[in-house]
Design a protein around this nucleic acid. Structure first.
Length: 350
DNA sequence: TAGGCCATCTGGTCCT
DNA sequence: AGGACCAGATGGCCTA
């Protein structure tokens, strides 16, 4: 990018002895999160008083000098085009102040974005404070999660664990897949199609691109998988009959069919799992030993909301897991807890 | 050491 | 005019 002789070019003036970063980028100190946050607080907090006064004072100085410039320019031949204001010291200072305020705003904005992402991390199935999902993986997992839940709502049938985890892990990197598998106490090898067998046809989500490469797990050591390997946009745009039948088996298999997964124990480092339906503890009941994954069904959940009889009548509950334990992650409102209770109800002992 | 991830700065664009 | 948003650039940190 070429720079005209503007305020911007003045900032890189090596003669400038101010604290403004001379290379136009953050210094090492500025990249330090603690110092940055502190600087941010100072900027955000104090900009309105002391800095504002200085800003205003510079503004006045600038106006004064600008008048002098006008008088001086009057003696020179007039030039065509937009009038370029000479960069006075005051103008440089004013621009610096403006830039600092913009940087502070931008930092603040990004912090807000990161906060929102952190909230998303807590909502998606696999949450760990010690091993955070990357931003992109969080978004991918959230997308898969939404897609899977949408399918549950659409079909009204309970998914089997393996299929659900497969759906969650579509397009995720190998480490993230391992993490999710670890959260659910699954061995990723048991559901990574490309490592053993082709995906069953009924597991292929709708969409042509899907059919070709339903799962595009990267090989270890390679960069993250290509984006867009799972196009979930079809969920609300494809006619139901065009994919409904193909997905039926996906959610038809009862949890009682899930005896095949091999629970080799956690592959990932110990996690503090606060996921909506994932938890890690010693299996205490027969049900947990078999599935390591079960939910306490509450009939007043989704089925009732859908206007028909409960899909999964509560049977003798072999695994009693207080919902509070499942939804105990921080910062969730009552509404979120209720929502998650309903979602958790999907996974029931049928 | 290369690559991934991240925070930050920066300038452009759009909107109010 | 100023703020929000965005994308590119840059450098630091971490890990395989």
């Amino acid at each position: 990018m070429t720079k005209s002789y503007t305020e911007e070019t003045m900032l890189s003036d090596p003669q400038d002895s101010t604290t403004w970063p001379e290379d136009g980028h953050g210094s090492q100190d500025e990249n330090d999160p603690e110092k940055n946050s502190k600087a941010h607080e100072e900027l955000a907090g104090d900009m309105d008083d002391e800095d504002e006064e200085e800003f205003n004072r510079l503004d006045e100085d600038d106006d004064d000098e600008e008048e002098e410039e006008d008088e001086g320019d009057a003696q020179k031949p007039k030039r065509r085009g937009p009038k370029k204001k000479k960069m006075t010291k005051a103008r440089v200072q004013r621009f610096k102040m403006r830039r600092m305020k913009a940087n502070a705003r931008e930092r603040n904005r990004m912090h807000g974005l990161n906060d929102a992402l952190e909230s998303l991390r807590k909502i998606v199935p696999c949450y760990s404070k010690t091993q955070k999902l990357s931003k992109i993986e969080t978004l991918r997992l959230a997308k898969n999660y939404i897609w899977a839940l949408s399918e549950i709502l659409r079909s009204g049938k309970s998914p089997d664990l393996m299929s659900f985890v497969q759906a969650l892990c579509k397009g995720l990197s190998q480490p993230t897949t391992n993490l999710v598998a670890g959260c659910l106490q699954l061995n990723p090898r048991t559901f990574l199609p490309e490592q053993s067998q082709e995906l069953p046809g009924h597991m292929q989500p709708p969409g042509a691109s899907f059919a070709a490469h339903p799962y595009s797990y990267q090989t270890p050591g390679l960069p993250s998988p290509p984006y867009g390997t799972m196009d979930s946009s079809h969920i609300f745009h494809v006619k139901p009959h065009s994919y409904g039948s193909s997905l039926e088996p996906f959610f038809e298999t009862a949890l009682t069919d899930c005896t095949s997964p091999s629970f080799d124990g956690p592959l990932s480092p110990p996690l503090s799992v606060n996921g909506n339906f994932s938890f890690k503890h010693e299996p205490s009941s027969e049900f947990e030993k078999n599935y390591a994954f079960s939910m306490h069904y509450q009939a007043a959940g989704l089925a009732g909301a859908q206007g028909h009889a409960p899909l999964y009548p509560s049977s003798a509950q072999r695994c009693e897991i207080p919902m509070d334990n499942l939804m105990s992650y921080d910062g969730h409102t009552h509404h979120e807890r209720v929502m998650n209770a309903q979602l958790n109800a999907i996974f029931h002992d049928s």
